[in-house]
Amino acid sequence: MRIRRTLSAAAATAGALALGLAAAVPAQAAEYSSALKIKGVQYDAPGRDSNKCSGGNTRNEYLTIKNYSKTTTVNLKGYKVKDAVGNTFTFRNSHTLQPGDLVSLRGGRGTDSDAGNVVYRQNCNFIWNNDKDTIYFYKPTGARADVHAYTKSANDRDGNGYITYHG
């Protein structure tokens, strides 16, 4: 009887330790089951920040999304991008990404183009903070496709305002 208690206590301790280790893994370290992932972000547009629709530089702030599948074409319609405070952009129109293809989601106003691999947010306000932020990327089902948190000091070693993810 005493042996059972010892084994049960050891098993409970091991289980608690395993749960603790699993909880310690940061959310962005998890790989989500999505062909589409965030390839990089130009979170700090070059030059002095100006969110004027005419002459501003919000279109130089962009997020690059890549289709990492080798065989599947994916339509972006219904996918969402959010920042840490809830600013959200939803891909409302069809925009297909062939295997290995990518698209730049840019700030500012412009004409979306499959051929030019660009979609505009049709909003002249900046979405990404210049010091730190979190980028959430959701499938049309609401499931998370990818997520990345960044800080300028830790992730942008060369200080150019661009960070690469997933190679």
Rank of each mutant, 00 (worst) to 15 (best):
Y165C: 01
P99N: 11
S94Y: 03
T96P: 08
T6A: 14
G56T: 08
L63R: 01
S33G: 13
Y68K: 10
A145Y: 07
G107H: 02
V147N: 02
T64G: 11
N67D: 06
S69W: 09
A154Y: 09
G108A: 01
H166P: 00
S153H: 11
M1D: 03
T151S: 06
K70Y: 02
A24K: 06
R5K: 10
D133Y: 05
L19E: 02
D158T: 01
S113C: 15
A27Y: 07
K132Q: 05
T151E: 07
H148M: 12
N130F: 04
A45Y: 10
T111W: 04
T58V: 09
I135E: 00
L63M: 12
C53Y: 09
A84P: 04
P99T: 15
A9W: 13
D146Q: 10
N67F: 00
T88R: 08
I127C: 14
K152R: 14
D156H: 06
R106I: 15
G110E: 12
A24N: 09
A18S: 13
S33N: 10
R144I: 12
T111M: 04
G20F: 09
A14P: 02
T90S: 06
D49I: 09
N160R: 04
A16G: 07
A24D: 13
Y138C: 12
T151W: 01
N93E: 10
I135A: 01
Y43H: 03
A23P: 06
R59P: 14
V74K: 00
L76D: 03
D101T: 08
G116I: 05
A14C: 07
H148R: 02
A29W: 10
T72M: 12
I135C: 02
V119D: 07
H166R: 13
A154N: 15
N75F: 08
K152M: 09
D146K: 11
R121S: 13
G107L: 07
S8V: 14
A29E: 08
S54D: 12
K139W: 03
G15E: 09
A35R: 10
C53D: 05
